[in-house]
Amino acid sequence: MEPVRRAVVIEDDDDIRHLLETVLSQAGFAVTACANGYDGIEAVRNVGPMVVTLDVNMPGIDGFETAKRIRAFSDAYIVMLTALGEEIDTLQGLESGADDYVTKPFRPRELRARIEAMLRRPRAGAAPTPPPVAPQGRPAEPPAYAPPAAGAHAAPPAAGPPPTAPAERLEHLGLLIDLGTRLVMADGQEIPLTRSEFDLLAALMQSGRRVRTKADLAILLRNESYVTSNFVSDADKRGIEVHMGNLRKKIGENSVTPRWIETVRGVGYRMTGPDAPV
C-alpha cells in the first residue's frame, strides 16, 4: 500500500487557496490549507507534507520568512506563488529555501507539472537502498556455489580487478561530489547544498567542458526533456542564475577568476579547464 501523499497550501486569497486545493487533490494529494504563515508552519510540522505551496504577500509573516522557518525543520518541496516578478524577489524566495518560484497568474496544469517534476528528483541525503535481509533479521547469505554441469569446463578466473560500476564520485581541482550520497566536499570541507544546487553542480561536473545553457539547466531541474518541454521563461533562467550565485557563494567561488565553474557569456556555464587558478 502506497503512503499518502500530503501537501500544505499556505495562501491568504480564498479563491486561489481553493484552486490550489483542487489542483493538488486532483494530483492525488491529501491537502491541508491555511490562510497565513503561522498556521501554515504548524500544519507543516503536524502533517509532514511532501509539498508546500506558499504565497509571498500574507498577513502576519510573509512567505519569505515562512519558508525560512519551514526549512529549519522540514525537507518538503516548497513552491512559492506570488504576483511579484522582479529578479530580487526570485533571489529572496530561493534564498529563503524555496525549490521553485511561480508568478501569478499561473496555469494550474503547469503548476501540477512542476510539482510532479520536483517529486521525481531525489531528496537531499536520501538513504541508499539497504542490502537484502534474510528472515528473522539475519543478513542474507550469498548464493550457493553450483558446480559446472557434467562435461562442461569451468571458466578460468578472470585476470585483473573485477569490473567496476559507473563512477559515482566526480572530482575537479579539489571539488568532489558523490552522486550516491549527495555529498559535496571542497578542499576537504563538506558543503551543504540544496537539492537544486546539488543537481546543477552534478550536471556541470558530468558535462565537464561542455557548456550547459540556462534553458538546459532549467529543464533539468524540472526533470523534463527538450522533447516534452514547451517553454523556458525568463524567470526560469533568472532562477538558474540565482541558484548558480548561491552555489558559488557556498563553495567559495570567485566568479571573476573562477576555480571551478565559469560563465560562458550569453550561453550558460561549464567547468573550468585544468589551468584554472588553484
Score class of each variant (00 low, 15 high):
Leu200Ile: 13
Lys214Val: 12
Glu241Ile: 04
Thr213Gln: 04
Val184Ile: 13
Leu183Cys: 11
Ala202Glu: 06
Asp234Phe: 10
Gly174Tyr: 12
Lys249Pro: 07
Arg182Gln: 15
Ile251Val: 15
Arg212Glu: 08
Thr228Pro: 00
Leu204Ala: 10
Leu173Asp: 10
Ile177Asp: 02
Val242Gly: 03
Leu175Arg: 03
Gly188Met: 06
Glu190Met: 13
His172Met: 10
Leu201His: 09
Ala218Asn: 03
Arg222Ile: 07
Leu220Pro: 03
Leu173Tyr: 05
Leu170Lys: 02
Val232Lys: 00
Arg248Gly: 15
Val227Pro: 02
Asp187Ser: 13
Ser229His: 08
Leu175Asn: 08
Asp236Ile: 08
Thr181Cys: 04
Tyr226Arg: 12
Ala186Arg: 15
Glu253Gln: 12
Ile240Thr: 04
Asp236Ala: 11
Ser229Lys: 02
Arg248Ser: 14
Leu170Phe: 06
Arg209Asp: 15
Thr228Phe: 05
Met185Gln: 15
Thr228Leu: 05
Gly252Leu: 07
Asn223Pro: 07
Gly252Cys: 08
Glu224Gln: 09
Leu170Val: 02
Met244Phe: 11
Arg248Tyr: 11
Leu175Gln: 07
Ser233Lys: 09
Leu173Pro: 00
Ser229Tyr: 05
Val227Met: 08
Thr181Trp: 02
Asp178Met: 01
Ala203His: 02
His243Ala: 06
Met205Tyr: 07
His172Ala: 09
Gly245Thr: 12
Arg248Phe: 10
Val242Phe: 01
Arg238Leu: 14
Glu197Cys: 04
Glu190Ala: 14
Met244His: 11
Arg238Asn: 14
Ile240Met: 04
Ser225Leu: 05
Glu190Cys: 10
Ser233Gln: 11
Val227Gln: 12
Ile219Asn: 05
Val227Leu: 11
Val242Thr: 09
Asp236Trp: 00
